[in-house]
Simulated scan of single mutants.
Amino acid sequence: MDIYTIVGFFGMACIIAAYAYLTFNAAPNPFVLHGTNLAGAALLTVSLVEHTNLPSLVLEGFWASIALYGIGKALVERRRAS
């Protein structure tokens, strides 16, 4: 097992943790949720650049884009609330 595979496993753990956080928390913090998803997508992308799997790489691009949108939306909502 090389370093890229290990990094990929950490990315996978981030995404699973974010999904569990969303599922088990009645009022999840969007920064925690989307930040963890973004970190997971980034780590998996590092792994996928070395061990190329194009469909998974594209999926991580969409995953990261959605996470960035979620963070942006949460920032706008926080600004409106204050």
Rank of each mutant, 00 (worst) to 15 (best):
T23E: 11
A41L: 06
V7D: 02
N37K: 06
P55L: 08
A81H: 11
V46L: 07
N25V: 07
I6M: 10
A20Q: 04
I16G: 07
G11T: 00
N53V: 13
L38Q: 01
E60S: 02
I6K: 11
Y21W: 06
A74P: 01
I6N: 09
N53A: 10
T45Q: 01
P55S: 08
P28F: 04
H51T: 11
S82T: 14
R80C: 12
L33F: 09
F9M: 03
V46D: 03
V7A: 14
G72N: 15
C14K: 00
L33I: 01
A41R: 02
V49A: 11
A81N: 08
L68C: 13
K73E: 09
A64G: 10
M12T: 12
C14R: 01
L33A: 01
Y4E: 13
G11I: 02
V46A: 04
L54G: 02
A42S: 12
R80S: 15
Y69S: 15
A81Q: 14
F62H: 08
R79S: 15
N25W: 01
V49E: 07
L48R: 02
Y69I: 05
T52R: 11
F62V: 10
A26P: 00
L75C: 13
W63G: 02
E50R: 12
I66F: 14
G70P: 04
Y19M: 05
V32N: 08
I3V: 15
F9E: 14
A64H: 08
K73M: 08
M12D: 11
A41S: 10
S65L: 12
G11W: 01
A27N: 12
P55W: 07
Y4S: 11
P55A: 15
I15S: 02
P28W: 05
A13P: 00
F31W: 08
I16N: 10
A81E: 15
E60P: 00
L75T: 11
L54Y: 15
I16Y: 04
R79L: 09
A81Y: 01
V32A: 09
Y19D: 13
Y19T: 14
A64R: 09
D2H: 05
T52W: 12
H34K: 11
L38H: 09
L33D: 00
F31T: 02
A17I: 10
I3Q: 08
A18Q: 03
A67G: 09
H34I: 02
F31R: 02
G11D: 00
A17Y: 01
C14I: 01
G8Q: 00
P28G: 05
A74N: 10
I66Y: 15
V49Q: 08
T23V: 15
P55H: 03
G61H: 06
A42E: 02
E60K: 03
A42D: 06
P55C: 11
I71A: 05
R79K: 11
V58Q: 06
P30K: 03
L68F: 14
P28C: 07
A26K: 08
S56D: 13
W63T: 03
R78Q: 13
F10D: 05
F10Y: 14
E50M: 07
L43C: 06
A20I: 15
F62A: 10
G72I: 07
P30V: 10
V46S: 03
C14W: 00
I3S: 10
S47L: 05
S65N: 07
G35M: 03
I16A: 09
F31S: 00
A67R: 09
F62W: 05
